[in-house]
Design a protein around this nucleic acid. Structure first.
Lengths: 233, 233
DNA sequence: CAGTGGTCTAGACCACAGG
DNA sequence: CTGTGGTCTAGACCACTGG
């Protein structure tokens, strides 16, 4: 059982993974504690800790003080999607990026927007719609409301050459956010912008971000039909 | 500049975040090295390292040996979606889970499936379709091909009481996988299962998993119209 | 070449939660 | 109460990479 000279936390992690995959440690099993594993592997406990903590973050182990470490019975796959600035997303695919501002207005928002942003129903907010292009083809439609009560600087931007997407990330920090993914049928207006038939299935990402207790922005990004988001697990 | 007694890595992280949000350290800026920060904070360098490493994993810092640590110019939001066993997903929402096997056959797969799984075009694979229900309403449609050449145990399962989704996670480990998200129109057959109009916009998750060099399974999960996947960032 | 982050160590104390 | 993981420390060596 004793293993020699596993000196890096990665090698410890690999050996632990091997034991899990080889079913030496089965789903639901309690594995030896950190001190024992350190002795087995001939390394410091902190090295074992680093390896196991990382596996727990990936969902393969479940750790609890006093109760010990178990192999996850049904590991939850964690798919991490990188939501970058849309311009970079396009350029990283090797395409030419284009940008068209479709609408910019300061007005009273629909109630579901003002409620989500936590502002008064009569507050005027900045509304921006813009089309992002990839090699001149519609790539994504951005429909954004900015809480200009707490981000007054936004009112001074015309968003003609820089997208609100990019300007906000550069200029306004946020501390937390919610994000959701859904498939929705394209409305007539959305379809016109995206140059696709009405009711086409489009991938929609909704984001709502906050800076401490103040909302920053609510945005819906619609991707042209056929768009895929990919990642490794 | 000197800060007193920040003794936990979380408190160091909070102070670093505060400086970033307060624009004391601006996007793109080089921040002091770990040794200096440790002196400032009055803690060990490894504590600073833990705090900064964690922020780098979240995408807020960019770290390179010799070059130092910079505030990310345009932080890439990392949205981590938990892909759990569908039964648990339904039950966690407080709904009653139901399951109906729609199809189980061993046959030659379409070429795009056999190619994706890296098996011969004439190999017979296990094909399973099943409907997952939430409070008796269609929740998700699972369309799965299992590489029964390398997972022969699957041929002995009838998948009538346990879904392939759940059985595989319990029984067959995988070392890596690809996952993609897209919006697609429901085919006539899919629409019938999901009890929705044909061409409804549905969220599709495609997964392909491998155990070392052997493919395990290729699956498409279609969620009923209106389904949302949510997470925090 | 030299400065930076990456990691390992041995030891210590602590927070939490199971029994 | 006690065993477990969570963390901190001080020091050390190493790997990478920019100048």
């Amino acid at each position: 059982m004793n293993v020699q000279a596993a000196q890096t936390w990665q090698s410890v992690q690999e050996e632990v993974l091997r034991r899990i995959h080889a079913r030496e440690w089965k789903p639901g099993d309690l594995i030896p504690n950190e001190a024992e594993l350190a002795k087995d592997f001939g390394c410091a406990r902190s090295t074992v800790n680093r390896a196991l903590r990382s596996l727990a973050e990936r969902g393969l182990l479940e750790r609890r003080r006093r109760a010990g470490t178990r192999v996850a019975a049904q590991p939850v796959a964690k798919a991490t999607l990188n939501i970058a600035v849309i311009r970079h997303e396009v350029e990283d695919r090797g395409a030419r990026y284009g940008y068209q501002l479709a609408l910019r207005e300061a007005r009273v928002a629909p109630t579901h927007i003002s409620a989500a942003l936590g502002v008064g129903v009569q507050d005027r907010l900045l509304h921006v719609m813009a089309l992002h292009l990839s090699d001149d083809a519609p790539y994504a439609l951005e429909d954004r409301w900015i809480n200009s009560v707490h981000v007054p600087d936004a009112l001074e931007q015309d968003f003609r050459s820089i997208s609100a997407n990019e300007w906000l990330l550069q200029s306004v920090p946020y501390t937390r956010g919610e994000i959701s993914f859904a498939a929705i049928p394209a409305s007539a207006e959305n379809a016109k912008h995206l140059n696709c038939p009405e009711n086409s299935a489009v991938l929609a990402i909704n984001r709502l971000t906050w800076d401490h207790d103040h909302s920053v922005t609510a945005v819906q990004v619609l991707f042209a039909p056929g768009h895929q988001m990919r990642t490794q697990i």
